[in-house]
Structure formats: C-alpha cells, structure tokens
C-alpha cells in the first residue's frame, strides 16, 4: 500500500507541472504584459515609474518566457508568493485563502450530499427495477443531468423571489457578512449553504444514481450473491455486504471526475448566487485582466481537483484489494 501511495504521488508531479503551465499560459494570454494594463490607468491612477521598473525586474518581464515561468512558479513553490493583484493592490495570497476555504467547504459538503442521496436511491432503483419509484428517479436523473447549474440557480432564485419574496443569494445574512467567525456565524453559513449544495449537487447526484444502479444490476446476478444466499444470510445482509460493497468501487473511481465537476459547478453557481467563494473572484479578475490573481486561482483550483483525484484513487485502492495487490 505504501508503495502504491508513493507511486501515485510521484505520478502527480507531471500533472502539476502541466497544470502550472496552463495557468501561466492564461496569465500570459492577454495582449501585452500586464504593466501595459497597469499604466493604461485602468488599474491605478498614478503609477510610479520606479515601482514599475521594480516589478519588471521582479517578474523578469524583459527576460525569455521560460525564465518568467520559472520566476513565477518558484516564487509560489518556495516562498508561497503568488504575485500581486493589480486591481486590489494587495498580494494575491491575502485575497484567495478565505474564499478558497469556502470553495473547499462547499465542494466537500456537496460531495457528502451526493453520496448520501445517490447511494440509497441507486440501491433502491436497482433492487426495485422498473418500479414506479425507479421510474421517478430515472426521470429525475435525466433532468438533473440536462439542466445546467446556473439555470437551476436562476430558477430557484426566481421561485424564492416570486413566491417567498426573498432574495436567496449570498452565504451570510447581512449582519454576518463582515462579522468575525463565531458559532452564530457558522450557523448562519450553514443555513445559507443548502441552496448552493443542492444546485451544485444535482447533476452529480443524478449521474451517481445511474452509475450505482447500473453497477448493482450488474452485480446482483453474480454467483457470489447466490453463494451467500445459499449460506442462509438475510437478503439485506447479502446485498449490503456483497454487491453493494463491490458496486461502490466504480462509484469511488467516479469521484475522480465528480470532484472537478463540483469545483466547476461551485464556480459558476457562486457567480450567479453571489457567494463569497473563488468563483466570483476569478470572474472579476478575468474581466479586469487581473491576471496574477486569475492565474493563481486557476492554479489552486486545479491543484485542488488533482488532489481530489489522488484521494479518490487511494480510497479505491483501500477498498479494492485486487488493485492494491497489483501495484
């Protein structure tokens, strides 16, 4: 197992390098270097020439592209320095971590939500194939997959605005937006969290129900189920201990793409609902061409999903002895 973990972590390195290159490419993408943007007056009123020269040296802007890349990535890896946000006039570091925490929180809670909802429903649908309930969940599943996150967010906002007369955006009540962390603030957060969780989780829930159902239907007629029955075990025990347990494996490997989808969903849903996560920050940074901020956010979010994928692989190896033995 230790060897497997080690190998798996080693394999992550090329992924991370590629991810950082993509993020850097995005930083570089707007025409001209950002100092041009800075000097055009959009971002700041008066710009000190000395300051600009200092920055040019810091980011190696007059040097070849790979030197710039190295300066940027080594700053992040060795000093935790993500550069400067020009719009906010503060280090990127100070801006992102609070929001990043909320993104992680929302994505993780949504993940738990998806599992808690989809596994029992998947089991029910498979063991009661073609029942009324199975059809209801199938229809729900298809619609859940077809409706984009932001549309669901809009519809739910419209409904609550129209019929309950309240606006449901945000993660905190006005009183708590600026308040320091306290139990009351956490409670307020949780009270606001259910809506984004449902919105982000719908598509994932729908697809995991389908995966669980299909896997379980594959497993139920297998000989080991019959053998367990021949040993006098109860039907419930037979199902939970054997086929459900084995059908969970593909579900765990599905995590590898569910988690990135959640981070994506979080980004767009947060923009619509105006949540204080990374999504709206990235959106604004992209619009104002605040490229170090945008690039850093993309990098961090990508690293987050890569780590999520790693965790799902490790979980899978822990669940499936065959996989563990192979490596």
């Amino acid at each position: 197992m230790a060897i497997y973990i080690f190998k798996r972590i080693l394999l992550m390195i090329p992924t991370l390098i590629l991810v950082s290159m993509i993020a850097f490419a995005i930083i570089q993408a707007p025409p001209g270097d950002f100092l041009t943007t800075l000097m055009s007056g959009e971002a700041g009123e008066t710009v000190d020439v000395v300051q600009i020269e200092a920055m040019r040296a810091r980011y190696g802007l007059d040097q070849p592209i790979w030197v710039q890349y190295w300066k940027w990535i080594s700053g992040i890896v060795f000093h935790g320095d993500f550069g400067e946000s020009f719009e906010w006039k503060r280090p990127v570091n100070e801006l992102i971590w609070d929001r990043f925490g909320l993104t992680v929180l929302i994505s993780s809670i949504t993940l738990v939500f998806i599992w808690v909802v989809s596994i029992p429903i998947g089991i029910y649908s498979a063991t009661n194939k073609y029942s009324a309930g199975d059809y209801v969940f199938t229809v729900f599943g298809f619609i859940g997959l077809a409706i984009p996150n932001f549309l669901l967010a809009l519809v739910l906002m419209y409904i609550s605005f129209q019929y309950f007369g309240q606006s449901v955006g945000g993660l905190f009540s006005p009183a708590f937006v600026q308040a320091p962390w306290s139990f009351a603030r956490v409670g307020d957060l949780l009270a606001h969290l259910w809506l984004p969780v449902i919105i982000i989780g719908t598509a994932g829930t729908a697809s995991l129900i389908r995966i669980m159902r299909a896997n379980l239907l594959d497993e139920l007629p297998k000989p080991y189920v019959e053998a367990a029955r021949a040993r006098g075990l109860s039907e419930f025990r037979i199902r939970v201990k054997y086929p459900v347990r084995i059908a969970l494996n593909p579900l765990v490997s599905a995590l590898a793409w569910v988690f990135p989808a959640l981070v994506s969903g979080d980004a767009i849903t947060s923009i619509v609902l105006n949540l204080q996560t990374t999504g709206p920050l990235l959106y604004r940074a992209l619009q104002s061409q605040d490229m170090y901020l945008a690039g850093s956010l993309i990098l961090i979010l990508s690293v987050l999903t890569v780590i999520g994928t790693l965790l799902s692989d490790l979980l899978l190896a822990w669940l499936d002895p065959r996989l563990r033995a192979e490596v």
Partner: peptide
C-alpha cells in the same frame, strides 16, 4: 479530466 473545466474555460 482531473482539471476543473469551468475555471479553465473561463480563463481561456
């Protein structure tokens, strides 16, 4: 496949 598509697409 392990990258978050929307932020990436947004950036590109």
């Amino acid at each position: 496949r392990s990258l978050p598509t929307i932020p990436l697409w947004m950036g590109l």
